[in-house]
């Protein structure tokens, strides 16, 4: 399923961190349109930091991030959103006292074209659970439904690159299957590049074209999904699977 394309988004030797703390110490990899990439690694290895850096919430201290061949390292989050990079961070990321409809409209905040309403309808077709509750407050929905909403909000930007931080966190098994299936189809149908951080690494790698292992702020291994699933070291250290 992995089709070789020139990278849509490319990281070259990226360094980033908080205050005096340096977390990413030279991360390089590239992803193409229509692909899913899983970033795995131990807790505290810098996976979430990586996503925040790609989205522009953290500054690139060294190295470069380029999108469609142009450097975006100096751009702020708003410009990156407009360019087509969206994120669904870990933890609740919606507006609890607004209705689902208002939340989806807020998702398209950076857009000013008149396709928003059509996209909104498209979104509720894709996530039928949202259509039923369009006029309910987001805060009154269950955790899994809010997770769906947040994904839909990010898609309202019509992103080319979608960053997902722990999309399966706190979801029941049925919901997890559903989420992973829709992630796969989003990449294939809409041609976007999806980069996700996931603790549920086995399931994530199964639907991924590329796996990236982050260790102590550096990329320690990359490979296709099946390669990763069969690598004895990775099986032992990150997947909790018996070595075959």
């Amino acid at each position: 399923m992995a089709v070789e394309k020139e990278p849509l988004l490319e990281l070259r030797d990226v360094h980033a961190g908080y205050g005096e703390l340096s977390i990413l110490k030279g991360v390089s990899f590239g992803v193409g349109g229509g692909t899913v990439t899983s970033v795995i690694g131990a807790n505290g290895a810098g996976k979430s930091t990586l996503l925040k850096t790609i989205f522009g919430m953290l500054k690139v201290r060294e190295g470069d991030v380029s999108f469609e061949g142009r450097s975006i390292a100096a751009l702020g989050t708003v410009k990156r959103l407009k360019a087509g990079i969206a994120i669904v961070p870990q933890g609740r990321c919606n507006f609890p006292q607004m209705t689902i409809r208002e939340n989806l409209e807020m998702g398209a905040y950076t857009r000013s074209d008149d396709g928003i309403e059509a996209d909104l309808q498209h979104m509720v077709d894709q996530f039928p659970i949202l259509r039923e509750k369009l006029h309910l407050l987001a805060g009154d929905m269950s955790g899994g439904q809010q997770q769906m909403l947040e994904m839909a909000m990010a898609l309202m930007v019509r992103p080319r690159v979608l960053l997902l931080d722990e999309p399966s966190l706190g979801l029941s098994p049925m919901m997890i299957d559903e989420v992973f299936t829709s992630i796969r189809s989003l990449a294939e149908v809409n041609g976007m590049a999806i980069i996700m951080v996931e603790q549920n690494a086995v399931q994530a790698l199964k639907i991924s074209d590329l796996g990236v292992v982050i260790e102590l702020g550096r990329v320690s291994a990359t490979g296709t999904g099946p390669e990763m699933l069969n690598d004895p070291d990775i099986r032992k250290a990150y997947l909790g699977l018996p070595v075959i």
């Binding site: 919430m57 669904v88 933890g91 990321c93 905040y109 930007v157």
Partner: peptide, 9 residues
């Protein structure tokens, strides 16, 4: 939600 606000731009 200030973080969510930043996320939607």
């Amino acid at each position: 939600n200030r973080e969510a606000a930043a996320v939607v731009g």
